[in-house]
Design a protein around this nucleic acid. Structure first.
Lengths: 209, 209
DNA sequence: CCATGTGAACAAATTCACAGCA
DNA sequence: TGCTGTGAATTTGTTCACATGG
């Protein structure tokens, strides 16, 4: 289908959805793009443009039905289906993410943690046992994991990514500070803390001197 | 100064720097934008455009001197100065980040961890004790922390941000899934895992049906 | 009448392509 | 000669402003 939606738009859709859920909790049933924008520091024109890409969700002269819009956006992002995560790399970050609420809420759930260190294999993180990557394919198949989370050191990132791809994983969230060489059949989102820190550093040098 | 550099450019500068350091470790002394682009899947024209914003770093007909370019970019990002981080929120994520290598390498260092839970105050994370936010101003002053890292729940993010700002923090890395209402004297970078997961979810729904 | 949905205007970012210098 | 540095062309993203329809 029309898979050519800009990632910027998609990010904003996530934000709209989150905002709408808040409104819903507050019992608000209808909202205009104008008021939604004011409430959450967004742009009303952009809200309309973004939404219009996916259909006519609003009622002219009235606004949007909160619950209906939530449903539509939820379906759009596939949040009505469960998404199972497999974490590769049980260091500080991997371990924390395995327990992290954001990774275990809504439709997302961590179903497996893998680490190549034999000393770690067998250890427990919450209710999960750390597994060896030797049987990654089996693990992926058994748990129906769809999203791989890479929390290995930079040097090991590419091989682990390749391994995940070989096991049928199509979506990867990469925390290793490397540009991976990508298989075209996958999507990868990079989360790179150091880049953010360095950006903040740049700002601090500008303001301090 | 010319503080109006796009964040996109700045992100790429970080990536160039990282790539150059790798080349340096491999003993490469000179590189052209062309070969740098090939090696790390970048765009050569963009490399030149990005660098040219900050001066004439290259030699026509030859390329760039790796070590010199590293020096210049390091200074540009202020990575020649130490940057101290204070982590606010000692949950799973905050605790992991306090120990995370990426947050304790190069010029970055975690110098304090703060949590409002009295049961946590006094506990140790590595060589740091968790402190109470009551004396945040003192803590910031004593540790010379410059960058605040927000790892508190969404509901608590705004107040903790405001508190950091009141204590003189100008740069914040926000992990809470909220759009903060910003003080204009600060820069904030948001890291929002859920947005990334939802983007991946969108892709999976497109390819699976 | 009022807020959506949208073409048209504008702005930002990227890519192209080449003049100019080592 | 061969690369950088850079205007010009193009693509992408955002904002404006209004015709359209509930």
């Amino acid at each position: 289908m029309s898979s050519d939606v800009s990632p910027l738009t998609l990010n904003r859709i996530s934000i709209y959805l989150r905002s709408l859920r808040r409104l819903q909790r507050q019992g608000i049933e209808r909202i205009s793009s104008q008021r939604l924008a004011e409430r959450f520091h967004l742009s009303s024109a952009q809200i309309r443009k973004d939404l219009a890409q996916f259909g006519e969700f609003g009622i002219r002269g009235v606004g949007y039905e909160v619950s209906e819009l939530i449903e539509r956006l939820t379906a759009l992002l596939g949040l009505d289906l469960p998404r199972r995560l497999i974490i590769v790399g049980a260091g500080n970050l991997g371990t924390a993410l395995a327990r992290f609420v954001g990774f275990n809420s809504g439709s997302f759930e961590v179903v497996a943690v893998v680490d190549s260190d034999p000393d770690k294999v067998g250890e427990r993180i919450g209710r999960l046992h750390i597994r060896s990557p030797d049987r990654l394919e089996e693990t992926v198949a058994a748990t129906h994991a769809e999203i791989g989370v890479l929390t290995v050191p930079a040097e090991a990132a590419q091989e682990n990514y390749d391994h995940l791809v070989a096991c049928g994983i199509q979506a990867v969230l990469n925390f290793a500070p490397v540009r991976l060489e990508l298989d075209p059949r996958t999507v990868v989102k990079n989360v790179d803390f150091r880049i953010h820190l360095e950006e903040l550093g740049y700002f601090l040098t500008r303001t301090q001197e």
